[in-house]
């Protein structure tokens, strides 16, 4: 593997209250240039916090309590905010779930793009406008030049998300963090946006972190996938391996619970119970209370997500042969 573009090492994030609440615990992820890494998990598993931590968009009471974040060979979690502002939007950009709230309704799309471009690149008004039109064209908006003068409400949901992607591309970033970019969109439009993200990652050599709860999206777009559970990494590996032969009992349960066209089961396999509250995590493995393969050891000892021989990381005592 080439030198990682993004290297998250043992990242922990806590919600600082009277008793600090750990929302992300000891997460390590690497991302190569041009690679698309999926991050899946239930609501509250820590998907979005991971993205926010890399962007340093966490506000109090959320706080990084451990670990390091390296981007392009330099550590970014300790640099001053002024330095981070130069990275944010320029080197690392973010795409949010709801394209309507990510755009300012009182400015035209062109104004927003030109402003963002000139923030990051030394271009004059005319050159920035030409660049804005080129970006809209690149993300697949027809008659891009004319549409620059439209307001966000004049675009459909799918087109708006394309505009948001164009905005993210404005600084020519090397890493894009996409937090549920297709969740608010229709199925046929969702497929278009995923195809666009994959193509951009390949053509520009951009790294993409794709945060989603939709395994179908992961299957189509990602090279590798990280499964989070209760703020911890449960499994990390190539998409094919994790989706067709999941090893962590949680990944297995999660993937079995997804309805598939043509399966025609009477009942869907379901994982008993619910994800524990973060303030009431069990002592050992967080999944132990729901796990069908639970052993005594699991209840007291927390498993590490160590890399196995085949490159898959699984945080499970079953893998240790305990």
């Amino acid at each position: 593997m080439t030198a990682p573009l993004l290297d998250i090492r043992n990242l922990s994030v806590s919600l600082m209250r009277d008793v600090p609440l750990t929302v992300l615990s000891d997460i390590s992820l690497q991302l190569a240039p041009g690679e698309i890494l999926g991050v899946v998990g239930e609501s509250g598993a820590g998907k979005s916090v991971t993205g926010a931590a890399v962007m340093r968009l966490m506000t109090r009471p959320l706080q990084q309590t451990g670990g390091e974040i390296w981007f392009d060979g330099g550590r970014i979690d300790t640099v001053p905010e002024s330095h981070m502002q130069k990275l944010r939007g320029k080197q690392i950009a973010m795409i949010f779930q709801d394209p309507l709230t990510a755009l300012n309704p009182v400015f035209t799309v062109g104004q927003q793009l030109v402003q963002t471009i000139r923030q990051h690149l030394p271009l004059d008004q005319a050159a920035a406008r030409a660049r804005a039109a080129a970006l809209l064209g690149e993300v697949g908006i027809p008659s891009a030049r004319e549409r620059l003068d439209n307001y966000p409400h004049e675009f459909s949901g799918g087109m708006r998300q394309r505009v948001v992607i164009a905005l993210a591309l404005a600084g020519e970033p090397r890493l894009i963090i996409a937090d549920e970019p297709t969740t608010a969109l229709d199925v046929s439009i969702q497929a278009q946006i995923i195809a666009l993200l994959v193509e951009l990652a390949r053509s520009r050599g951009m790294g993409v972190i794709l945060i989603t709860h939709d395994m179908g999206v992961i299957a189509e777009a990602c090279d590798r996938v990280a499964v989070l559970y209760a703020g911890r990494l449960a499994e990390l590996g190539p998409v094919r391996s994790v989706l067709t032969a999941p090893r962590h009992p949680y990944s297995r349960g999660l993937i079995a619970a997804i309805p598939r066209v043509g399966a025609r089961l009477a009942m869907l396999p379901q994982i008993p119970g619910t994800m524990p509250r973060l303030d009431a995590l069990p002592a050992g493995c967080a999944f132990a209370p729901r796990c069908p393969f639970v052993m005594e050891h699991c209840k007291t000892h927390r498993p590490e997500a160590t890399p196995r021989a085949d490159g898959v990381q699984v945080a499970c005592w079953l893998e240790e042969g305990q």
Binding site: S156, S188, I194, A195, V198, V261
Partner: peptide, 22 residues
């Protein structure tokens, strides 16, 4: 619609998306 639905079985190939919008 059935072709474009993202599924676990369409791994690694983003399906040819349906052009245009509603």
């Amino acid at each position: 619609l059935i072709q474009t639905v993202p599924s676990l079985d369409t791994m690694g190939r983003a399906s040819a998306p349906l052009k245009g919008e509603v």
